[in-house]
C-alpha cells in the first residue's frame, strides 16, 4: 500500500514532507490538484481517495463536480469525513477550539467549519449526481440530540 498526500499549497507540502522525514513515515506528498490524472492517482482501480474536513470548504454547487472528478479517475472507492452539522457540533467545535487552539484564525475557522458543513442529504444528492455507478452512503444523526461520539461522519462511495 502506498500513501500519498496531496495539496495545492506547496508550502504545506514541503512542511509535510519535512515532518514525514523527521518521523520516518512511509508516505509521500505531492503538490497539485489531486484529481488531475497523473498527479497522485496513477491507477484509479487501485486507488481509494480519503479526506478529513475538506468538504465544508466547497460550496454546495461544486460538490457534484468534486464527486464526478473521482468517477472520471475511476477510483475504487472514496471516503470523505466531515462534521455532522448541527447546533451541538457548532457548540462542541467552539469549546474544542477555545481549549485546544491559540491562534485567532484557528479559533474562528474551527467554528465556521462546523457551521458550514453540508448535511448528509446534500452530500448524498451531490454524490449520486456526480458519481453515478458508485454505491453511496452517508448518515446524519438526529439534529437536536447531541451525539458526542459521532462528531464527524463519512460519505462513502464504492464502485458498484
Amino acid at each position: 500500500m502506498e500513501l500519498v498526500g496531496v495539496d495545492l499549497n506547496a508550502t504545506l507540502i514541503a512542511q509535510a514532507t519535512r515532518l514525514a522525514g523527521v518521523e520516518r513515515l512511509r508516505c509521500r506528498f505531492v503538490t497539485g490538484d489531486a484529481f488531475e490524472p497523473g498527479v497522485a492517482v496513477e491507477d484509479g482501480a487501485r486507488t481509494i481517495v480519503i479526506s478529513t474536513g475538506l468538504l465544508h470548504h466547497l460550496p454546495a454547487a461544486q460538490l457534484p463536480e468534486f464527486f464526478a472528478a473521482q468517477r472520471r479517475l475511476g477510483v475504487h472507492a472514496f471516503a470523505h469525513w466531515d462534521f455532522d452539522a448541527g447546533p451541538w457540533a457548532t457548540l462542541g467545535a467552539w469549546v474544542f477550539h477555545r481549549a485546544r487552539t491559540r491562534e485567532a484564525v484557528s479559533r474562528h475557522d474551527g467554528v465556521l467549519s462546523a457551521r458550514r458543513a453540508h448535511p448528509a442529504a446534500a452530500l448524498l444528492r451531490a454524490a449520486r449526481l456526480g458519481a453515478d455507478g458508485y454505491r453511496i452512503a452517508c448518515v446524519d444523526g438526529p439534529r437536536w440530540l447531541p451525539r458526542l461520539t459521532h462528531v464527524v461522519r463519512p460519505i462513502t462511495g464504492t464502485r458498484a
Binding site: V95, F96, R98, A99, R100, L148, T149, H150, V151
Partner: peptide, 17 residues
C-alpha cells in the same frame, strides 16, 4: 479517539476555559 474527544469537549475544554 471518539470518547477522547468527548473528554475534551465535555470536561477538559470547559475546564481549561
Amino acid at each position: 479517539w471518539r470518547r477522547r474527544f468527548l473528554a475534551t469537549a465535555l470536561v477538559l475544554g470547559p475546564g481549561t476555559l
